[in-house]
Design a protein around this nucleic acid. Structure first.
Length: 725
DNA sequence: ATTGAGCTAAACAGGT
DNA sequence: AACCTGTTTAGCTCAA
């Protein structure tokens, strides 16, 4: 353990080894002398680039008489037994002592923990820093960890400097295992130089580090490879290593025979194949490889893709970060990442969309040329016009939805007791009795329903937008629930007539509360049913202040204005490293798919086009709200809802029936929804109100409605709120 | 079924 | 040569 990387060693000419083949290292054995093959093969396969004079290594094992450069993600240590093919894959032959198992220990890089680990598999265990470790134990390796297996002692060393000079004066390049891709690539790349892959070398492997997309540029092997590597580092790396080494071996032709015989790289055919495969891979264009974040590495609030179109993102960026002179493309990238940290953590690809958008969208104009690119600016007028049109479209859709709802409601009101067996799709049958009663009802009912619908639209206005179908469902259900609730309460109180009309007349504020609660419940129900993300933790605006923006909006706004972004994201290409280590882990295993999973997982951080990718493979429109086609909430079901909720209740129905006794799940849910709104549940004493029948109108609900409509009608002045699409 | 918007990916050219 | 930037095209999904 006396020799160090730069120490003098009489065997300096042959004191280098790599993971390419098993090396005998035991200092006390007669096998101490390193085989010629090893000397000859020294660095052959691992000097990258013609004329390169240094070796790349992740870490080093400092044996007493030589240094072993760890250049693969996994090395196997044990006792080499002649004729035992299971020991062929040994990287380091620790000696002939029987105390050493044929496969005794494994040193590997754990991508999950971002550290090297030692796994003891030998029966007799090992000593790590003089502490006995029994077999089956895996433990982390730190810099200068002392390991003893049998009589063989060595030290695990992590490189600390950009380059280390060994005893030969050779430069040894430390490599971060997270850059394994680059290393693997260089193995199989005839033309690759070490500079590309070791640019990141200043970080030690155990220091969690974010790979700067700029500085970590490496030749691309394809996402599948990256992911494979990260998903199962050991297995795949070993495989690739083999292929790469085989390629190198094949390349070296005559030198093949010089490779240590214990190495498993002998099959010429396999080597040829690997070479071909390596060559094939080289044909792919070079591409930046960015660190892949696992969901748990991403702050929760940045896991979901902001619900803005790219044009909105860019426009917002230009507004907030832009100057008179405009913004360069890279500044726009950076700005978006700062404003919407999701884009700091998500895989690359969005930049392409940004460029595409800048080019195509007429809202963005080139201000002036700078360097090789343009400075981009925002044509506010054009953009505002586009936004206005979009909003109009959405409003139109909502209006249509409510009109649809109105139609259904009217249908129901005309035929409230239609048997279930009758299909709603068929024309509404003529009512066979009490036509006068129906027509009498319809006047008041129409007004009541119309009022309810208006209120619903008002309450919905500030909420998260869903597609037309979902909105219709929510509104329908909320309406049904409201009617049911009022009817139920009225029945419980023994009130005759049409309580809805009475209530609206006497206390519209209460109606608003009920509607709001019902809207909460319905939203939860429908979104849950459809597998859509819930609007937010508290979907409804406070009923007492109906004009306030809905929480859903503030939820969205967190993306518009992270205050401040928790990790100061990407100030410069190099500043990524400023991310706390807790957040800057390296992606190793395949993150769980999240595109279809509920919030707060990453919605759809895609790995473009590669099915085996780390990220969920789901499709497109990731900037849109999650909207899915689900079962139709058709006329029939709507009418059934109305029927269900409006069925005359038995006269003897218990007054103030406890919620828990309610059998109707929907109603339960609605009441639960009410409970979500503490104000509502506290203040809502409908039964009492109806029983007293004399509640005074405290608030002019209609006036409030108008006020709120005025104040929310066109919120153009506030760019943030106008963003919600 | 059609259409348009938006997203994603890729090819390509030109510049640094 | 490698990378960045900008343009264009194509294919896809989704909603209207």
């Amino acid at each position: 353990m006396t020799s160090t990387l730069s120490g003098d060693d009489p065997l300096s000419d042959c004191n280098e080894s790599t993971a390419s083949s098993a090396k005998q290292v035991h200092g006390t054995d007669s096998s101490l002398q390193l085989p010629m093959a090893m000397q000859s093969s020294k660095g052959k396969s691992f000097e990258h680039g013609e004329g390169s004079d240094h070796i790349q290594a992740y870490a080093m094992l400092d044996f007493e008489n030589f240094t072993f450069y760890v250049q693969t993600m996994q090395i196997l240590l044990g006792r080499l037994v002649e004729g035992d093919t299971s020991t062929d894959s040994l990287d380091i032959h620790l000696g002939q002592q029987k105390a050493i198992s044929r496969r005794h220990a494994k040193i590997f890089y754990n991508f999950g923990n971002q550290r090297f680990e030692l796994s003891v598999v030998g029966r007799n265990g090992a000593f790590v820093d003089d502490i006995f470790v029994e077999n089956g134990v895996t433990l982390p390796l730190k810099d200068k960890t002392r390991i003893q297996i049998g009589e063989t002692r060595f030290m695990f060393i992590l490189p600390t400097d950009e380059t280390v000079t060994d005893s030969n004066g050779k430069q040894i390049k430390p490599i971060n295992p997270s850059d394994a891709v680059s290393l693997k690539t260089s193995f199989s790349n005839n033309h690759a130089t070490s500079s590309g892959s070791s640019r990141e070398g200043s970080s030690t492997p155990q220091r969690p580090k974010v790979i700067d997309s700029k500085s970590s540029t490496v030749p691309k092997l394809g996402d599948d490879f990256v992911n494979e590597l990260r998903a199962s580092a050991e297995a795949s790396v070993v495989k690739r290593e083999e292929a790469a080494a085989a390629a190198a071996a094949a390349r070296n032709g005559s030198q093949l025979s010089m490779v240590d015989g214990v190495n498993a790289l002998s099959a010429a055919g396999r080597a040829q194949q690997s070479l071909q495969s390596a060559k094939d891979k080289l044909k792919k264009p070079l591409k930046t490889v960015k660190k892949v974040y696992k969901p748990e590495e991403i702050p929760e609030e940045y896991r979901t893709k902001p619900n803005f179109s790219y044009s909105t993102l860019i426009a917002e960026c230009l507004r907030q970060k832009g100057t008179e002179r405009g913004m360069s493309l890279s500044e726009i990238y950076k700005g978006i990442q700062e404003l919407y940290p999701y884009y700091y953590y998500c895989p690359d690809g969005w930049q392409s969309s940004v460029r595409h958008n800048l080019s195509l969208n007429k809202s963005f104009r080139k201000v002036c040329k700078e360097g090789k690119g343009w400075l981009w600016g925002l044509d506010e007028e054009y953009f505002a016009e586009k936004e206005r049109l979009k909003r109009k479209q959405i409003e139109l859709a909502n209006i249509k939805a409510t009109q649809h709802l109105q139609t259904l409601s009217q249908q129901f009101q005309q035929h409230p007791t239609r048997p279930e067996s009758q299909s709603s799709s068929s024309p509404a049958p003529e009512s066979n009795s009490s036509e006068s009663s129906n027509s009498k009802l319809s006047g008041d009912t129409k007004k009541a329903l119309s009022y309810l619908q208006q209120e619903l639209i008002r309450l919905t206005k500030d909420r998260k937008m869903y597609d037309k179908e979902t909105t219709t469902q929510i509104l329908t259900q909320a309406l049904a629930m409201t009617i049911a609730q009022v009817n139920q309460a009225a029945k419980n109180a023994g009130i005759q007539g049409f309580p809805l009309v009475t209530l609206i007349d006497k206390n519209p504020a209460h109606i608003t509360k009920i509607l709001s609660a019902a809207l909460n419940a319905a939203t939860i129900q429908v979104t849950k049913k459809k597998g859509l993300p819930p609007p937010s933790s508290s979907p409804a605006p406070p009923v007492s202040k109906p004009v306030e923006p809905a929480p859903a909006r503030s939820n969205i706004q967190q993306f518009a204005r992270p205050t401040p972004p928790v990790p100061k994201p990407l100030a410069t290409s190099g500043s990524i490293k400023s991310i706390s280590s807790a957040q800057a882990g390296i992606a190793s295993t395949t993150p769980s798919p999240s595109s279809s999973s509920p919030i707060p997982s990453i919605r759809k951080p895609q790995y473009y086009g590669k099915p085996s990718s780390v990220a969920p493979s789901s499709s497109r429109s990731i900037n849109k709200p999650v909207q899915q086609k689900q079962s139709q909430y058709d006329n029939e079901s709507i009418q059934l809802q109305f029927q269900k909720f409006s069925q005359p209740t038995p006269p003897a129905a218990p007054v103030a029936k406890p919620k828990s006794e309610l059998e109707d799940l929907d109603m339960k849910l609605m009441l639960d929804g009410m409970d979500h709104d503490k104000d509502t549940s506290k203040e809502l004493d409908l039964d009492k109100f109806l029983a007293q029948h004399s509640g005074e109108v405290e608030l002019d609900s209609k006036k409030r409605t108008l006020d709120s409509l005025d104040s929310t009608k066109d919120q153009e002045p506030d760019p943030k709120s106008s963003k919600i699409e």
